[in-house]
């Protein structure tokens, strides 16, 4: 540190400090210009709405009358709202259906693609569902899973399994929604893992083969640990994304049947746009926001997100 400040004073003595500072300021300005577009987007679509929602959550705004400051009343109400906690529970269940299966399937597909089919076509097919929107995926599967005219039941009957109700049964609806989401996202997850696999040097596997490791031992002891950074990214983004499940529910079940798919975002949406309780809906959004930050921090901590063993 002392060396650094000494350098500075030497520069100032020579009179180059002024010039240096101006140059540095100019460089900084250029830097800010480069991040400006992203910064505008971030402020307009993330920072501002977040602050605004926090503000609204402290009011009783209902779109009709001007908002009145009511302090933390909404949060008190939320604490006592069984439906809110019920929707959190449904969301959690959805995450549990969704994440392990999606991650495991993605990993299996990635390893298979890496080991067997290094073809671009295979990867293109795998990623295809990700390229259509959630709404379209939801609509397609709404038809496919239709108990009477859907292809899925036709297929199941064909192989001797009795037809299922899927989205129209309270017991199967949430699992079906999770299935649709897995179908749409697994290719992207696989692609991320596939990219991660490419960064693992091949000679590690050769060394392990000479060391006598079996395929499964190599997977457990080399592939998995070295995929950790990708795993962190996949888990954090997919867990946060799953907690925010909305559009598939909106086009398939609309929270039903019998509220069995009323996930927290759907409940927030109902409150905001069906019952016009903007203040209350914002309060729930804030709780979800803080909760997801905590979940993310916890995940990153547990998975040591800040360190990679590779290079």
């Amino acid at each position: 540190m002392t060396g650094r400040s000494a350098d500075k004073s030497v520069n100032a003595d020579k009179g180059s400090g002024l010039f240096g500072n101006r140059l540095r300021r100019k460089e900084a300005l250029t830097g800010y210009l480069f991040i400006l577009p992203a910064l505008i987007g971030l402020i307009a679509f993330f920072a501002f709405p977040t602050i605004r929602a926090a503000q609204i959550s402290l009011t009783n705004w209902n779109l009709m009358r001007p908002a009145h400051w009511i302090g933390f009343d909404n949060y008190g109400k939320l604490w006592a709202d069984g439906k809110f906690w019920d929707s959190m529970q449904i969301t959690l269940l959805y995450v549990i259906y969704n994440i392990p299966l999606q991650t495991a399937l993605g990993l299996i597909i990635a390893v298979l693609a890496d080991r067997l089919a290094k073809s671009v076509l295979f990867r293109a097919v795998i990623i295809a569902p990700y390229l259509i929107s959630n709404v379209v995926a939801g609509l397609v599967w709404l038809l496919m899973l239709d108990p009477l005219i859907g292809l899925t039941n036709a297929f199941l009957t064909g192989i001797g399994i009795p037809p299922q109700s899927f989205l129209s049964s309270p017991d199967q609806a949430l699992i079906s929604v999770a299935g649709i989401s897995i179908w749409r996202h697994v290719g992207f997850t696989a692609l991320l893992f596939y990219a991660g696999l490419q960064s693992i040097p091949r000679d590690l596997y050769e060394a392990a083969r000479l060391d006598g490791a079996s395929e499964s031992a190599m997977f457990r002891m080399i592939t998995l640990p070295l995929l950790r950074p990708v795993m962190v990214f996949v888990l954090v983004t997919s867990v946060v994304g799953s907690f925010q499940v909305f559009d598939v529910i909106a086009v398939t079940t609309q929270g039903g049947p019998a509220n069995s798919t009323r996930a927290v975002l759907w409940y927030i949406y109902e409150n905001a746009f069906q019952f016009s309780r903007m203040g209350y809906a914002s309060a729930m959004s804030m709780v979800l926001f803080v909760f997801l930050i905590l979940v993310t921090l916890l995940q990153m901590r547990l998975l040591r997100a800040d360190s990679s063993d590779l290079g």
Binding site: D203, L204, E206, A207, R209, L210, G212
Partner: peptide, 16 residues
């Protein structure tokens, strides 16, 4: 693994 050989790789291939 059963040939009784051990190899030292150019890149060392240490498990990172």
């Amino acid at each position: 693994a059963k040939r009784g050989v051990a190899m030292v790789f150019q890149s060392y291939a240490l498990y990172p």
